[in-house]
Amino acid sequence: MKIKVGFGFDVHQLKDGHPFVVGGVNLEHHKGAFGHSDADVLLHAICDALLGAANLRDIGFHFKNTDPQWKGISSVILLQETVKLIAAKGWQIGNIDAMLCLEAPKINPHIPQMQENIAAAIGMSVEDISIKATTNETMGFIGREEGVVAYAVCLIEK
């Protein structure tokens, strides 16, 4: 068996009046992530981790933010397409571990639903998907609620 590890990172600006989708969950908040797709920072970081592990470049290479077909698309679809890309190279996902960094809203109540959304999208158990959240202790652009960041690592195997 061959295994590889991937790392993903994503950041999105937060703007008043925008929807805030994280892990496929619509969060109630006065600000939301701004981007070409639904700007789901968590799923974008996971996609980058998976693509990187399989040596398939990054999310921007496959789903360009200048391509109208991806405008406003659910990042759940981007994740599903990413899984197809790595599967075409013979890889399957072992596990995913992700971290969100934002001041508000509180993420912990939504983590089980995020895990279920991701598990359903990629066909694996919620037991293999870890999501954590932290704040930036009111420092920097995250602390001022100007942006949201996500990190992810994954293990893939062949």
Rank of each mutant, 00 (worst) to 15 (best):
F63I: 08
I46C: 08
V41G: 12
G24A: 08
N55R: 12
I86M: 09
I156C: 02
V83G: 06
E145A: 00
E146I: 02
I118T: 09
G35D: 10
R57G: 02
G72K: 07
T134Y: 03
G147V: 05
K71Y: 09
D58S: 13
K31E: 00
L50E: 04
Y151E: 09
D16Y: 07
A119Y: 08
F63S: 03
H30P: 07
L102N: 10
A88T: 08
H44I: 12
E127A: 14
K64T: 08
T134L: 00
V148S: 03
T134D: 12
V41F: 03
K4W: 08
A53N: 04
M139T: 12
A87H: 09
G17F: 07
I129D: 09
D16H: 04
P68N: 06
V22D: 02
H36M: 02
P105A: 04
F7N: 05
D128Q: 15
M1I: 13
G147T: 02
E127D: 14
V153Y: 03
P105S: 00
W91I: 04
Q69W: 02
G32A: 08
D67K: 07
V126Y: 04
T134G: 06
A87K: 14
I142P: 04
W91E: 11
V5H: 09
G52F: 07
F7I: 15
A39F: 02
G6N: 09
N95M: 10
L78A: 08
E103D: 03
A39K: 06
D40N: 13
V11A: 07
T138F: 13
L43C: 07
A53H: 08
I73W: 01
Q13W: 01
T134Q: 13
I3C: 12
H30F: 01
G17D: 06
I107Y: 01
I3F: 14
Q92T: 15
T66M: 00
G94A: 12
P112I: 09
G143A: 05
I142C: 05
E146F: 02
N117H: 09
D48W: 07
P112E: 06
K64L: 07
T134N: 01
E157T: 12
M114V: 07
I122P: 01
G143V: 00
S37V: 01
R144L: 06
H12S: 11
F9Y: 14
Q113V: 10
S37R: 11
H110Y: 13
K132A: 15
I156D: 06
A49I: 03
Q115N: 02
P112R: 11
H18R: 14
L85V: 05
M114E: 04
F34G: 06
A53S: 14
I3V: 15
H18K: 14
V25M: 01
S130E: 12
S130F: 12
K84L: 11
I46L: 04
G143T: 00
E146K: 10
G32E: 10
E103W: 00
P109D: 01
G17Y: 01
V41H: 07
F63E: 04
H44E: 14
K2E: 13
F20I: 05
M1F: 12
A49C: 03
H44Q: 13
F63P: 11
I96V: 15
I77Y: 11
K89G: 09
N55Q: 13
T138G: 11
A98Q: 04
K64S: 15
E145T: 08
K84I: 07
A119E: 06
D58E: 11
G94C: 07
G35A: 05
D97E: 15
I131K: 01
V41M: 00
I131H: 05
I118N: 05
S130N: 13
A33N: 12
V148G: 10
